[in-house]
Design a protein around this nucleic acid. Structure first.
Lengths: 253, 253
DNA sequence: TCTACTGGATGACGCTACGTCAACCGCAAG
DNA sequence: CTTGCGGTTGACGTAGCGTCATCCAGTAGA
């Protein structure tokens, strides 16, 4: 008692293409072929197909299903792995859903996805109130959106580059080079690029960079980053960055 | 102020292949090319890249991201759709996880994934106790596993074919054909195949089919399905199916 | 007997978002 | 002149089929 492709198709709801695919990859061979190469499946094949479809509905990849059916791997093991896999997927989706919700809420408040401020690298949560006072609520929220959107890797890289920069500044400060020296200007360029890597409007005007640099002197919390080897460190960094901005940046795009 | 591929790569954590891919599909063109075709990105491009990566982390497909960035579709709309999409995925994964758990538990109790009984089509939950009494707990649980593994479409098809069969039986019974008539035997063949579509061991022995057919008479709940047009309907179906089994089925594989 | 129709068959390409070679190229240092 | 860096352009592979385009065998109707 054998069944034709059409019969199997209408009984199981899969397509003939699927049957041929399973034949091609060796997952389910027809029990016999009739004239013209027509595929026919006997009960043995149908049982195998049922198992395939059952495991497929559980989300197992066909390769794993094949391994289970060939007895090369335990069904329990495969399903436990699948459970782990599903768990990871679930967590990822949950995280994405939260981010999507947050971003939608941010957008509804009339914000753009692009904007950002330049504070995140120092300490994101610690200075939020400060950001709010100086640049308004919008800036703080935009900042959050950007920072959250960066992802863990992005945040780590951003922080890492900041630390590397601080080390580089410490070094040129310790070497008593002038702020306009080549070594200091090289670090200044890196610093500006680092700022630019999180600067979210099209053009980063010279005045913005110079204003930020000025803050490194005016705000002791930022200054603290650059006075580790010398009290004059903050002024050094400020001068170096402002000089670089004067030399290489423009006010208008 | 432009950045090379290498700089963009190390700043964002994406690969150069990704940048070239985005170039190919027109999602992010480099702002300029230098000798040898080297790609360079200015701030405008980097801003765009930041938005791309943000939306990518939310799980949006690149095509949707492109549409948003080109202003062809609203960002809020796109994210709301994405939220729906994630919700559907979440539900699917949750369902799969439950099924995987159930199947693992069934397997731990020493059961095979394959087995099944022939009751599901009539009423799956209603007769569970009955199945348990006649065939033991194992059979009932295997039955659940199989039934659950079928999926909603599979269950609907299984039910639909049963209803079609019942209608076909009603018709031949009403036409006063003999159980051995060609018309009745045609329906019997369909009936046996329907049984076989859910029969999960390799061979369906003649005696099993005949036993099931006998139940259509002995068990009034099954009989009720075939006595809608005539009180003799159940006996008719039983005789027809048993005759078919005698003619076309074997005891051993 | 010719023809249309059924119910398939076999390629082959398409889809997502890149990873992963292989082969090559321009420029700079040794 | 060669080596190395930092890239470039193809081109194929991934999972699981969907979707053509083309062809073919057997059957029923004219």
């Amino acid at each position: 008692m054998e069944w034709s492709t059409h019969e199997v198709v209408s009984a199981t709801g899969i397509t003939s293409r699927t049957l041929r695919h399973y034949d091609q990859i060796g997952l389910l061979k027809p029990s016999s072929l009739s004239a013209g190469g027509l595929r026919h499946y006997n009960q043995l094949a149908l049982v195998r197909l049922q198992r395939i479809l059952l495991l497929r509905e559980l989300g197992l990849p066909l390769a794993d299903i094949a391994a289970v059916l060939e007895g090369q791997s335990s069904d329990i093991t495969a399903l436990q792995q699948q459970r782990q896999h599903l768990l990871r997927q679930k967590e990822r989706i949950d995280a994405q859903m939260r981010s999507v919700e947050d971003t939608i809420n941010a957008l509804r408040k009339g914000e753009t996805i692009m904007p950002k401020t330049m504070f995140e690298g120092f300490d994101h949560s610690q200075y939020e109130d400060e950001v709010r006072q100086r640049w308004g609520d919008d800036a703080a929220q935009r900042s959050n959106t950007w920072w959250d959107g960066l992802g863990e890797q992005g945040r780590q890289r951003f922080q890492q580059e900041l630390e590397d920069l601080n080390d580089a500044w410490d070094q040129v400060i310790a070497e008593c080079e002038a702020p306009v020296s080549e070594a200091a200007q090289d670090v200044a360029e890196r610093h500006v690029r680092w700022l630019g890597s999180s600067w979210q409007t099209a053009h980063m005007p010279r005045s913005a960079v110079k204003g930020i640099a000025q803050m490194y002197v005016d705000d002791e919390r930022f200054a603290a980053n650059y006075t580790r080897v010398s009290p004059a460190g903050a002024q050094f960094v400020c001068t170096a960055v402002q000089h670089y901005a004067d030399q290489h940046l423009t006010e208008e795009p």
